[in-house]
Design a binder for these strands. Sequence first.
DNA 1: AAATTAATTTACGTATACATTAAAAAATTA
DNA 2: TAATTTTTTAATGTATACGTAAATTAATTT
Lengths: 234, 234
Amino acid sequence: MADAKTREAGVKGSAKGKSNTQHAVSVLKSLILENRLSSGSNHLESELAEMLGMSRTPVREATLILEAQGLVEVKPRHGVRILSLSPEDMAEIYDILTELESLSAELAAGKDYVEADFATAEDAIRRMDEALANEDRETWAVADELFHSELVRLGGNRRIGNIFRTYSDQVRRARNLTLNLRPKPTKSNDDHRRVLKAIRDGDSERAREIHRAHRVQAKEMLIGILEQYGFHNV
Amino acid sequence: MADAKTREAGVKGSAKGKSNTQHAVSVLKSLILENRLSSGSNHLESELAEMLGMSRTPVREATLILEAQGLVEVKPRHGVRILSLSPEDMAEIYDILTELESLSAELAAGKDYVEADFATAEDAIRRMDEALANEDRETWAVADELFHSELVRLGGNRRIGNIFRTYSDQVRRARNLTLNLRPKPTKSNDDHRRVLKAIRDGDSERAREIHRAHRVQAKEMLIGILEQYGFHNV
DNA sequence: AAATTAATTTACGTATACATTAAAAAATTA
DNA sequence: TAATTTTTTAATGTATACGTAAATTAATTT
Protein backbone atom coordinates (compact mmCIF):
# COMPACT_ATOMS: atom_id res chain seq x y z
CA MET A 1 0.00 0.00 0.00
CA ALA A 2 2.49 2.61 1.10
CA ASP A 3 4.97 2.24 -1.72
CA ALA A 4 7.39 4.81 -3.05
CA LYS A 5 4.61 6.72 -4.79
CA THR A 6 2.34 7.16 -1.80
CA ARG A 7 5.32 8.08 0.31
CA GLU A 8 6.28 10.71 -2.22
CA ALA A 9 2.70 11.97 -2.20
CA GLY A 10 2.83 12.33 1.55
CA VAL A 11 5.85 14.57 1.33
CA LYS A 12 4.68 17.94 0.21
CA GLY A 13 5.88 21.47 0.15
CA SER A 14 8.99 22.40 2.06
CA ALA A 15 10.11 18.86 2.76
CA LYS A 16 13.31 17.99 0.95
CA GLY A 17 16.16 16.29 2.74
CA LYS A 18 13.95 15.71 5.74
CA SER A 19 13.23 12.21 6.91
CA ASN A 20 9.65 11.11 7.23
CA THR A 21 10.04 11.27 10.98
CA GLN A 22 11.09 14.91 10.88
CA HIS A 23 8.36 15.62 8.41
CA ALA A 24 5.80 13.99 10.68
CA VAL A 25 7.05 16.07 13.60
CA SER A 26 6.64 19.34 11.76
CA VAL A 27 3.32 18.49 10.15
CA LEU A 28 1.83 17.22 13.39
CA LYS A 29 3.16 20.25 15.23
CA SER A 30 1.52 22.58 12.72
CA LEU A 31 -1.74 20.68 12.88
CA ILE A 32 -1.75 20.93 16.65
CA LEU A 33 -0.75 24.59 16.82
CA GLU A 34 -3.37 25.52 14.23
CA ASN A 35 -5.97 23.65 16.26
CA ARG A 36 -6.65 21.30 13.39
CA LEU A 37 -5.97 18.45 15.76
CA SER A 38 -8.01 19.77 18.62
CA SER A 39 -6.62 19.53 22.09
CA GLY A 40 -7.93 16.67 24.12
CA SER A 41 -8.48 14.53 21.06
CA ASN A 42 -6.96 11.09 20.69
CA HIS A 43 -5.44 9.66 17.56
CA LEU A 44 -4.25 6.17 16.78
CA GLU A 45 -0.84 5.69 15.27
CA SER A 46 -2.34 4.00 12.24
CA GLU A 47 -4.77 6.87 11.74
CA LEU A 48 -1.97 9.45 11.78
CA ALA A 49 0.14 7.22 9.57
CA GLU A 50 -2.55 7.07 6.95
CA MET A 51 -3.17 10.81 7.23
CA LEU A 52 0.50 11.49 6.62
CA GLY A 53 0.95 8.87 3.95
CA MET A 54 3.66 6.91 5.68
CA SER A 55 3.98 3.80 7.82
CA ARG A 56 3.58 3.68 11.56
CA THR A 57 7.31 3.64 12.24
CA PRO A 58 8.14 7.28 11.52
CA VAL A 59 4.82 8.38 13.03
CA ARG A 60 5.65 6.56 16.22
CA GLU A 61 9.06 8.19 16.36
CA ALA A 62 7.46 11.58 15.78
CA THR A 63 4.96 11.12 18.59
CA LEU A 64 7.75 10.18 20.98
CA ILE A 65 9.60 13.37 20.09
CA LEU A 66 6.45 15.46 20.46
CA GLU A 67 5.80 13.81 23.79
CA ALA A 68 9.28 14.75 24.98
CA GLN A 69 8.45 18.31 23.92
CA GLY A 70 5.27 18.28 25.95
CA LEU A 71 2.81 18.66 23.09
CA VAL A 72 1.18 15.26 23.26
CA GLU A 73 0.84 12.35 25.60
CA VAL A 74 1.22 8.82 24.28
CA LYS A 75 -1.27 6.65 26.10
CA PRO A 76 -0.73 3.00 25.21
CA ARG A 77 -4.12 1.77 24.05
CA HIS A 78 -5.86 5.08 23.64
CA GLY A 79 -3.77 6.72 21.01
CA VAL A 80 -1.85 9.94 21.02
CA ARG A 81 -3.58 12.57 23.06
CA ILE A 82 -3.17 16.19 22.11
CA LEU A 83 -2.53 17.98 25.39
CA SER A 84 -4.77 20.82 26.33
CA LEU A 85 -3.68 23.85 28.29
CA SER A 86 -5.67 25.19 31.21
CA PRO A 87 -5.19 28.73 32.50
CA GLU A 88 -3.02 27.15 35.21
CA ASP A 89 -0.82 25.58 32.55
CA MET A 90 -0.55 28.92 30.83
CA ALA A 91 0.45 30.52 34.12
CA GLU A 92 3.18 27.92 34.57
CA ILE A 93 4.54 28.56 31.13
CA TYR A 94 4.39 32.34 31.45
CA ASP A 95 6.21 32.20 34.78
CA ILE A 96 9.00 30.20 33.21
CA LEU A 97 9.26 32.45 30.18
CA THR A 98 9.23 35.51 32.43
CA GLU A 99 12.21 34.28 34.40
CA LEU A 100 14.24 33.07 31.48
CA GLU A 101 13.61 36.04 29.23
CA SER A 102 14.40 38.45 32.04
CA LEU A 103 17.62 36.61 32.66
CA SER A 104 18.35 36.83 28.95
CA ALA A 105 17.85 40.59 29.03
CA GLU A 106 20.22 40.79 31.99
CA LEU A 107 22.83 38.65 30.24
CA ALA A 108 22.48 40.56 26.99
CA ALA A 109 23.18 43.82 28.79
CA GLY A 110 26.43 42.35 30.06
CA LYS A 111 27.75 41.63 26.59
CA ASP A 112 29.59 43.86 24.17
CA TYR A 113 27.18 44.10 21.32
CA VAL A 114 27.49 46.50 18.43
CA GLU A 115 24.58 48.23 16.79
CA ALA A 116 24.26 45.63 14.01
CA ASP A 117 23.49 42.97 16.57
CA PHE A 118 20.23 44.72 17.38
CA ALA A 119 19.08 44.97 13.78
CA THR A 120 16.56 42.14 13.97
CA ALA A 121 15.17 43.36 17.27
CA GLU A 122 14.80 46.87 15.89
CA ASP A 123 13.14 45.47 12.82
CA ALA A 124 10.70 43.54 14.98
CA ILE A 125 9.83 46.74 16.86
CA ARG A 126 9.29 48.58 13.61
CA ARG A 127 7.03 45.84 12.30
CA MET A 128 5.02 45.91 15.50
CA ASP A 129 4.48 49.67 15.18
CA GLU A 130 3.45 49.23 11.59
CA ALA A 131 1.11 46.34 12.28
CA LEU A 132 -0.44 48.26 15.14
CA ALA A 133 -1.13 51.22 12.89
CA ASN A 134 -2.77 48.85 10.41
CA GLU A 135 -4.80 47.12 13.09
CA ASP A 136 -3.15 43.89 11.98
CA ARG A 137 -2.85 41.95 15.19
CA GLU A 138 -1.69 38.73 13.58
CA THR A 139 1.37 40.42 12.10
CA TRP A 140 1.91 42.22 15.38
CA ALA A 141 1.95 38.92 17.26
CA VAL A 142 4.47 37.36 14.90
CA ALA A 143 6.79 40.35 15.27
CA ASP A 144 6.32 40.37 19.02
CA GLU A 145 7.38 36.74 19.23
CA LEU A 146 10.36 37.57 17.05
CA PHE A 147 11.40 40.34 19.43
CA HIS A 148 11.24 38.05 22.41
CA SER A 149 13.15 35.40 20.55
CA GLU A 150 15.82 37.98 19.67
CA LEU A 151 16.09 38.92 23.29
CA VAL A 152 16.74 35.30 24.16
CA ARG A 153 19.27 35.02 21.38
CA LEU A 154 21.10 38.13 22.60
CA GLY A 155 21.22 36.61 26.08
CA GLY A 156 23.40 33.93 24.58
CA ASN A 157 22.16 30.94 26.59
CA ARG A 158 21.35 28.34 23.96
CA ARG A 159 19.44 26.13 26.35
CA ILE A 160 17.14 28.99 27.20
CA GLY A 161 16.59 29.23 23.46
CA ASN A 162 15.41 25.64 23.38
CA ILE A 163 13.09 26.09 26.32
CA PHE A 164 11.76 29.30 24.82
CA ARG A 165 10.96 27.63 21.52
CA THR A 166 9.26 24.69 23.17
CA TYR A 167 6.95 26.83 25.24
CA SER A 168 6.39 29.50 22.63
CA ASP A 169 4.93 26.77 20.48
CA GLN A 170 2.54 25.78 23.21
CA VAL A 171 1.56 29.32 24.08
CA ARG A 172 0.79 30.23 20.50
CA ARG A 173 -2.50 28.35 20.48
CA ALA A 174 -3.81 30.36 23.39
CA ARG A 175 -2.40 33.61 22.11
CA ASN A 176 -4.20 33.21 18.80
CA LEU A 177 -7.45 32.78 20.65
CA THR A 178 -7.02 35.86 22.80
CA LEU A 179 -5.41 38.08 20.20
CA ASN A 180 -8.63 39.82 19.26
CA LEU A 181 -10.06 39.87 22.74
CA ARG A 182 -7.18 41.64 24.41
CA PRO A 183 -6.77 45.42 24.56
CA LYS A 184 -4.69 46.95 21.80
CA PRO A 185 -1.04 46.40 22.73
CA THR A 186 0.02 50.02 22.48
CA LYS A 187 2.31 50.11 25.50
CA SER A 188 4.21 46.97 24.52
CA ASN A 189 6.66 48.66 22.20
CA ASP A 190 7.51 51.27 24.82
CA ASP A 191 8.69 48.43 27.02
CA HIS A 192 10.58 46.81 24.18
CA ARG A 193 12.40 50.05 23.41
CA ARG A 194 13.27 50.58 27.04
CA VAL A 195 14.65 47.06 27.40
CA LEU A 196 16.73 47.47 24.30
CA LYS A 197 18.04 50.81 25.58
CA ALA A 198 18.97 49.29 28.91
CA ILE A 199 20.83 46.52 27.08
CA ARG A 200 22.68 49.07 24.95
CA ASP A 201 23.55 50.97 28.11
CA GLY A 202 24.86 47.80 29.69
CA ASP A 203 22.46 48.22 32.58
CA SER A 204 21.74 44.59 33.42
CA GLU A 205 19.56 45.24 36.39
CA ARG A 206 17.33 47.70 34.60
CA ALA A 207 17.03 45.51 31.49
CA ARG A 208 16.00 42.65 33.67
CA GLU A 209 13.43 44.57 35.66
CA ILE A 210 11.82 46.31 32.71
CA HIS A 211 11.37 43.07 30.88
CA ARG A 212 10.17 41.22 33.93
CA ALA A 213 7.47 43.83 34.54
CA HIS A 214 6.52 43.63 30.88
CA ARG A 215 6.13 39.89 31.08
CA VAL A 216 4.23 39.87 34.34
CA GLN A 217 1.72 42.28 32.86
CA ALA A 218 1.35 40.15 29.74
CA LYS A 219 0.73 37.10 31.87
CA GLU A 220 -1.95 38.75 33.96
CA MET A 221 -3.66 40.07 30.87
CA LEU A 222 -3.69 36.72 29.09
CA ILE A 223 -4.77 34.66 32.08
CA GLY A 224 -7.43 37.23 32.87
CA ILE A 225 -8.88 36.95 29.40
CA LEU A 226 -8.75 33.16 29.37
CA GLU A 227 -10.68 33.07 32.63
CA GLN A 228 -13.03 35.89 31.73
CA TYR A 229 -14.07 34.17 28.50
CA GLY A 230 -14.22 30.75 30.07
CA PHE A 231 -11.41 29.15 28.08
CA HIS A 232 -10.78 26.42 30.58
CA ASN A 233 -8.87 24.35 28.11
CA VAL A 234 -7.10 25.57 25.03
CA MET B 1 18.56 -14.43 17.38
CA ALA B 2 16.75 -12.01 19.62
CA ASP B 3 13.84 -14.19 20.65
CA ALA B 4 11.75 -14.04 23.80
CA LYS B 5 14.56 -15.46 25.89
CA THR B 6 17.26 -12.99 24.91
CA ARG B 7 14.78 -10.17 25.35
CA GLU B 8 14.00 -11.42 28.82
CA ALA B 9 17.71 -11.61 29.55
CA GLY B 10 18.13 -8.00 28.49
CA VAL B 11 15.54 -6.90 31.00
CA LYS B 12 17.11 -6.99 34.38
CA GLY B 13 16.57 -5.57 37.81
CA SER B 14 13.95 -2.91 38.27
CA ALA B 15 12.30 -3.37 34.89
CA LYS B 16 8.78 -4.70 35.19
CA GLY B 17 5.94 -3.30 33.15
CA LYS B 18 8.40 -1.13 31.25
CA SER B 19 8.66 -1.40 27.51
CA ASN B 20 12.04 -2.09 25.99
CA THR B 21 12.11 1.50 24.82
CA GLN B 22 11.66 2.82 28.34
CA HIS B 23 14.17 0.31 29.58
CA ALA B 24 16.67 1.44 26.98
CA VAL B 25 16.12 5.07 27.98
CA SER B 26 16.84 4.41 31.62
CA VAL B 27 19.77 2.09 31.05
CA LEU B 28 21.39 4.39 28.53
CA LYS B 29 20.81 7.34 30.82
CA SER B 30 22.49 5.56 33.72
CA LEU B 31 25.40 4.51 31.53
CA ILE B 32 25.88 8.08 30.40
CA LEU B 33 25.51 9.64 33.84
CA GLU B 34 27.94 7.15 35.35
CA ASN B 35 30.40 7.95 32.61
CA ARG B 36 30.36 4.37 31.39
CA LEU B 37 29.51 5.70 27.97
CA SER B 38 32.05 8.47 27.92
CA SER B 39 31.06 11.83 26.60
CA GLY B 40 32.12 12.50 23.07
CA SER B 41 31.96 8.84 22.13
CA ASN B 42 29.88 7.57 19.25
CA HIS B 43 27.79 4.43 19.21
CA LEU B 44 25.98 2.70 16.40
CA GLU B 45 22.38 1.73 16.88
CA SER B 46 23.23 -1.89 16.25
CA GLU B 47 25.99 -1.78 18.82
CA LEU B 48 23.67 -0.39 21.50
CA ALA B 49 20.98 -2.85 20.48
CA GLU B 50 23.31 -5.77 21.00
CA MET B 51 24.56 -4.33 24.28
CA LEU B 52 20.98 -4.04 25.54
CA GLY B 53 19.80 -7.35 24.14
CA MET B 54 17.04 -5.96 21.98
CA SER B 55 16.47 -5.00 18.38
CA ARG B 56 17.27 -1.64 16.85
CA THR B 57 13.69 -0.41 16.99
CA PRO B 58 13.38 0.33 20.70
CA VAL B 59 16.98 1.54 20.81
CA ARG B 60 16.23 4.02 18.06
CA GLU B 61 13.19 5.25 19.91
CA ALA B 62 15.23 5.62 23.07
CA THR B 63 17.94 7.63 21.35
CA LEU B 64 15.32 9.99 19.92
CA ILE B 65 13.93 10.55 23.40
CA LEU B 66 17.39 11.09 24.85
CA GLU B 67 18.14 13.49 22.04
CA ALA B 68 15.02 15.49 22.88
CA GLN B 69 16.29 15.58 26.46
CA GLY B 70 19.63 16.94 25.34
CA LEU B 71 21.79 14.02 26.46
CA VAL B 72 22.86 12.74 23.06
CA GLU B 73 22.98 13.82 19.47
CA VAL B 74 21.88 11.46 16.73
CA LYS B 75 24.16 11.95 13.75
CA PRO B 76 22.98 9.89 10.77
CA ARG B 77 26.00 7.88 9.70
CA HIS B 78 28.18 8.39 12.72
CA GLY B 79 26.09 6.89 15.44
CA VAL B 80 24.72 8.33 18.62
CA ARG B 81 27.08 10.85 20.13
CA ILE B 82 27.14 11.29 23.88
CA LEU B 83 27.15 15.03 24.42
CA SER B 84 29.89 16.50 26.50
CA LEU B 85 29.54 19.51 28.73
CA SER B 86 32.02 22.34 28.70
CA PRO B 87 32.27 24.83 31.58
CA GLU B 88 30.18 27.15 29.37
CA ASP B 89 27.48 24.50 29.13
CA MET B 90 27.56 24.10 32.88
CA ALA B 91 27.22 27.86 33.28
CA GLU B 92 24.16 27.83 31.01
CA ILE B 93 22.54 25.08 33.02
CA TYR B 94 23.34 26.65 36.38
CA ASP B 95 21.92 29.97 35.25
CA ILE B 96 18.66 28.29 34.28
CA LEU B 97 18.45 26.31 37.49
CA THR B 98 19.22 29.43 39.51
CA GLU B 99 16.32 31.32 38.00
CA LEU B 100 13.81 28.53 38.15
CA GLU B 101 14.67 27.37 41.66
CA SER B 102 14.61 30.93 42.95
CA LEU B 103 11.21 31.39 41.38
CA SER B 104 10.12 28.15 43.02
CA ALA B 105 11.22 29.44 46.41
CA GLU B 106 9.27 32.62 45.79
CA LEU B 107 6.17 30.70 44.74
CA ALA B 108 6.45 28.29 47.64
CA ALA B 109 6.52 31.19 50.09
CA GLY B 110 3.23 32.38 48.63
CA LYS B 111 1.44 29.14 49.38
CA ASP B 112 -0.28 27.98 52.55
CA TYR B 113 1.81 25.02 53.52
CA VAL B 114 1.58 23.22 56.80
CA GLU B 115 4.53 21.82 58.69
CA ALA B 116 4.09 18.30 57.27
CA ASP B 117 4.71 19.64 53.77
CA PHE B 118 8.28 20.47 54.74
CA ALA B 119 9.05 17.03 56.13
CA THR B 120 11.06 15.82 53.17
CA ALA B 121 13.00 19.07 52.94
CA GLU B 122 13.78 18.94 56.65
CA ASP B 123 14.83 15.35 56.27
CA ALA B 124 17.16 16.29 53.43
CA ILE B 125 18.73 18.99 55.61
CA ARG B 126 19.22 16.53 58.45
CA ARG B 127 20.83 14.00 56.13
CA MET B 128 23.17 16.65 54.80
CA ASP B 129 24.27 17.56 58.33
CA GLU B 130 24.81 13.93 59.12
CA ALA B 131 26.71 13.19 55.93
CA LEU B 132 28.86 16.23 56.48
CA ALA B 133 29.77 15.07 59.97
CA ASN B 134 30.71 11.68 58.50
CA GLU B 135 32.72 13.24 55.69
CA ASP B 136 30.46 11.37 53.28
CA ARG B 137 30.20 13.72 50.36
CA GLU B 138 28.34 11.32 48.09
CA THR B 139 25.46 11.05 50.52
CA TRP B 140 25.59 14.79 51.06
CA ALA B 141 25.24 15.39 47.34
CA VAL B 142 22.24 13.08 47.04
CA ALA B 143 20.49 14.82 49.93
CA ASP B 144 21.38 18.22 48.53
CA GLU B 145 19.77 17.34 45.22
CA LEU B 146 16.74 16.10 47.11
CA PHE B 147 16.44 19.43 48.93
CA HIS B 148 16.57 21.36 45.72
CA SER B 149 14.04 19.04 44.16
CA GLU B 150 11.75 19.55 47.14
CA LEU B 151 12.03 23.27 46.74
CA VAL B 152 10.90 22.94 43.16
CA ARG B 153 8.06 20.68 44.19
CA LEU B 154 6.93 23.16 46.83
CA GLY B 155 6.95 25.86 44.17
CA GLY B 156 4.19 23.93 42.49
CA ASN B 157 5.14 24.56 38.85
CA ARG B 158 5.23 21.12 37.29
CA ARG B 159 7.01 22.24 34.17
CA ILE B 160 9.83 23.65 36.26
CA GLY B 161 9.99 20.17 37.77
CA ASN B 162 10.55 18.68 34.34
CA ILE B 163 13.23 21.17 33.43
CA PHE B 164 14.87 20.68 36.80
CA ARG B 165 15.04 16.92 36.36
CA THR B 166 16.39 17.16 32.84
CA TYR B 167 19.25 19.44 33.81
CA SER B 168 19.94 17.83 37.16
CA ASP B 169 20.68 14.67 35.23
CA GLN B 170 23.17 16.49 33.08
CA VAL B 171 24.80 18.32 35.92
CA ARG B 172 25.31 15.22 37.98
CA ARG B 173 28.21 14.03 35.85
CA ALA B 174 30.16 17.19 36.54
CA ARG B 175 29.17 17.34 40.17
CA ASN B 176 30.50 13.85 40.78
CA LEU B 177 33.82 14.88 39.35
CA THR B 178 34.14 17.97 41.48
CA LEU B 179 32.64 16.62 44.66
CA ASN B 180 35.96 15.83 46.25
CA LEU B 181 37.77 18.82 44.86
CA ARG B 182 35.43 21.45 46.25
CA PRO B 183 35.67 22.94 49.73
CA LYS B 184 33.56 21.25 52.37
CA PRO B 185 30.00 22.51 51.93
CA THR B 186 29.52 23.69 55.50
CA LYS B 187 27.63 26.90 54.75
CA SER B 188 25.15 25.22 52.42
CA ASN B 189 22.77 24.06 55.09
CA ASP B 190 22.65 27.52 56.66
CA ASP B 191 21.27 28.77 53.36
CA HIS B 192 18.85 25.89 53.11
CA ARG B 193 17.50 26.58 56.57
CA ARG B 194 17.14 30.27 55.86
CA VAL B 195 15.25 29.62 52.62
CA LEU B 196 12.92 27.24 54.37
CA LYS B 197 12.34 29.77 57.14
CA ALA B 198 11.55 32.49 54.63
CA ILE B 199 9.07 30.15 52.94
CA ARG B 200 7.45 29.35 56.29
CA ASP B 201 7.26 33.08 57.01
CA GLY B 202 5.63 33.64 53.64
CA ASP B 203 8.38 36.08 52.70
CA SER B 204 8.59 35.49 48.94
CA GLU B 205 11.18 38.12 48.23
CA ARG B 206 13.56 36.92 50.92
CA ALA B 207 13.12 33.26 49.97
CA ARG B 208 13.92 34.13 46.40
CA GLU B 209 16.96 36.21 47.19
CA ILE B 210 18.50 33.82 49.67
CA HIS B 211 18.20 30.94 47.29
CA ARG B 212 19.43 32.93 44.35
CA ALA B 213 22.56 33.95 46.24
CA HIS B 214 23.06 30.33 47.28
CA ARG B 215 22.85 29.19 43.70
CA VAL B 216 25.07 31.88 42.28
CA GLN B 217 27.76 30.91 44.76
CA ALA B 218 27.42 27.25 43.88
CA LYS B 219 27.77 28.07 40.22
CA GLU B 220 30.90 30.13 40.69
CA MET B 221 32.45 27.46 42.84
CA LEU B 222 31.72 24.67 40.37
CA ILE B 223 32.80 26.54 37.26
CA GLY B 224 35.91 27.72 39.04
CA ILE B 225 36.90 24.18 39.89
CA LEU B 226 36.15 22.87 36.41
CA GLU B 227 38.39 25.53 34.92
CA GLN B 228 41.07 25.29 37.59
CA TYR B 229 41.44 21.55 37.06
CA GLY B 230 41.20 21.79 33.31
CA PHE B 231 37.96 19.87 32.85
CA HIS B 232 37.17 21.35 29.49
CA ASN B 233 34.69 18.65 28.70
CA VAL B 234 32.80 16.50 31.13
C1' DA C 1 51.62 8.83 -7.76
C1' DA C 2 47.62 11.85 -7.67
C1' DA C 3 43.17 12.48 -8.97
C1' DT C 4 39.03 10.86 -10.52
C1' DT C 5 35.57 7.44 -11.07
C1' DA C 6 33.38 3.05 -10.12
C1' DA C 7 32.24 -0.64 -7.01
C1' DT C 8 31.39 -2.07 -2.48
C1' DT C 9 30.20 -1.83 2.06
C1' DT C 10 27.47 -0.41 5.76
C1' DA C 11 24.36 2.09 8.70
C1' DC C 12 20.28 4.16 8.57
C1' DG C 13 15.26 5.00 7.46
C1' DT C 14 11.12 2.75 6.52
C1' DA C 15 7.76 -0.78 5.81
C1' DT C 16 5.88 -4.75 7.33
C1' DA C 17 5.11 -9.07 9.86
C1' DC C 18 4.21 -10.77 14.04
C1' DA C 19 3.87 -11.16 19.19
C1' DT C 20 1.75 -9.17 23.16
C1' DT C 21 -1.67 -7.53 25.84
C1' DA C 22 -5.33 -4.29 27.10
C1' DA C 23 -9.96 -3.50 26.02
C1' DA C 24 -14.31 -4.92 24.27
C1' DA C 25 -17.67 -8.28 23.39
C1' DA C 26 -19.80 -12.50 24.15
C1' DA C 27 -20.94 -16.26 26.83
C1' DT C 28 -21.71 -18.30 31.08
C1' DT C 29 -23.11 -18.61 35.73
C1' DA C 30 -25.35 -17.27 40.03
C1' DT D 1 -30.52 -9.45 35.50
C1' DA D 2 -26.06 -8.69 37.38
C1' DA D 3 -21.70 -10.44 37.90
C1' DT D 4 -18.06 -13.21 36.28
C1' DT D 5 -15.49 -15.64 33.04
C1' DT D 6 -14.13 -16.59 28.38
C1' DT D 7 -13.38 -15.27 23.79
C1' DT D 8 -12.44 -12.08 20.44
C1' DT D 9 -10.68 -7.90 18.71
C1' DA D 10 -7.55 -4.42 17.99
C1' DA D 11 -3.68 -1.37 18.97
C1' DT D 12 0.65 -1.35 20.50
C1' DG D 13 5.60 -2.98 20.98
C1' DT D 14 9.19 -5.36 18.73
C1' DA D 15 11.81 -7.79 15.29
C1' DT D 16 13.19 -8.08 10.85
C1' DA D 17 13.61 -7.39 5.83
C1' DC D 18 14.97 -4.34 2.57
C1' DG D 19 15.79 -0.09 -0.11
C1' DT D 20 18.71 3.99 0.01
C1' DA D 21 22.43 6.74 0.33
C1' DA D 22 26.69 7.93 2.64
C1' DA D 23 31.24 6.46 3.35
C1' DT D 24 34.86 3.56 2.19
C1' DT D 25 37.60 0.96 -0.83
C1' DA D 26 39.08 -0.47 -5.30
C1' DA D 27 39.88 0.51 -9.94
C1' DT D 28 40.93 3.38 -13.52
C1' DT D 29 42.82 7.21 -15.78
C1' DT D 30 45.99 10.80 -16.27
